[in-house]
């Protein structure tokens, strides 16, 4: 029995969207605390290569994921020190992180290029749920990291909107001076949020090298870190909407390959150059970003009020 094409398409959208989802969830935490981290691309790349190398050494993909988390967190710590304690320009600091991470990942991965992953993530059908028509194949026939991302989306949703910590996090992002006078530790909140952002970006990277590809290829994120930053705006800083957005972009990403495959049969598709198909996710990101920004500007919602502004107690 083979599944209808549309079901396969949706299922691949989930797989392709998962690295974006992890990175976007991380960036939501970071930005909710008022810090902008444009280093997602760099953190993902380092997560990808470290997760890959750790899996090669340990023969265990979970050790790879933990190593990627640690690496992503350490990368984010650099950004935290620069932007929170040393009050550096957050845009430039994030760019520096991406440039550094790109170099670091290529340097580390150089001698491993082309080696297969000994213990890659494999799909596990969830009993009962995977038997559901359509839904089962689309959502419940994936690997463990996909299921973990569902859990994290739910946890982040509850944490941000229904716990005291989440309230504090949002307060720090909106008005750090007021939060500070309420006794909320502004610096600690920001540090931990930025590091959580790095940890999740690291997992997103590891998903690429351990489940999606699965291997290490130089610059393998191919702009996904930036698309994740755009997704956060698309999701108006909401974990649930980030999930939807990630799958849409994941779908577009994998659609490119599908159209190429279909081109064999449909002659009108054959005339589209593969280069144009590859442009599609980037162009879509821009179009969506423009539409969403124009729309949210009208409704005046979204952006944490203190995003990108360092907090200085003396300037209260």
């Amino acid at each position: 029995m083979s599944d209808p094409l549309i079901v396969i398409l949706f299922a691949t959208a989930v797989t392709a969207g998962t690295p974006l989802l992890y990175a976007a969830l991380g960036e939501i935490f970071t930005e909710r605390s008022g810090v902008l981290n444009l280093g997602v691309e760099g953190m993902m790349l380092v997560g990808a290569v470290v997760g890959y190398i750790a899996t090669l050494q340990s023969q265990n993909h979970w050790i790879g994921v933990f190593a990627a988390m640690a690496a992503g967190g350490l990368m984010a710590l650099i950004h935290a020190v620069l932007s929170i304690t040393l009050r550096a320009n957050q845009v430039v600091s994030g760019l520096a992180l991406t440039i550094f991470g790109t170099g670091l990942s290529s340097y580390m991965g150089k001698s491993f290029v082309g080696q297969p992953v000994p213990d890659q993530f494999k799909p596990i059908d969830i009993p009962v749920l995977s038997q559901l028509p359509y839904i089962g194949k689309i959502f419940f026939s994936h690997d463990a990291l996909v299921y973990l991302s569902f859990v994290i989306v739910a946890a982040a949703w509850v944490f941000i909107f229904y716990t005291r910590w989440g309230l504090n996090l949002r307060a720090v992002g909106e008005n750090p001076a007021a939060a500070d006078s309420m006794g909320i530790p502004v610096y600690l909140t920001r540090y931990s949020s930025v590091i959580i952002g790095g940890v999740l970006a690291g997992v997103g990277g590891a998903y690429l090298s351990l489940a999606y590809a699965p291997s290490w290829i130089e610059h393998m994120t191919a702009g996904r870190g930036w698309i994740a930053v755009a997704l956060v705006i698309f999701a108006v800083w909401h974990p649930g909407k980030a999930l939807v957005g990630s799958y849409i972009f994941g779908g577009v990403d994998s659609l490119g390959f599908r159209i190429q495959a279909l081109g064999e049969k449909a002659s009108f598709l054959k005339d589209i150059s593969p280069f144009f198909l590859q442009m599609f996710p980037y162009i879509l990101t821009m179009i969506v970003l423009i539409l969403i920004t124009a729309e949210t500007k009208k409704r005046r919602v979204g952006t944490p009020a203190s995003l990108g502004i360092p907090y200085d107690r003396e300037e209260r």
């Binding site: 040393l86 550096a88 760019l95 991406t98 440039i99 550094f100 170099g103 340097y107």
Partner: peptide, 13 residues
Amino acid sequence: SMLQGAILFFVLG
């Protein structure tokens, strides 16, 4: 590019 990124970190810091 690692060195470039690191230089920028220190300049910013």
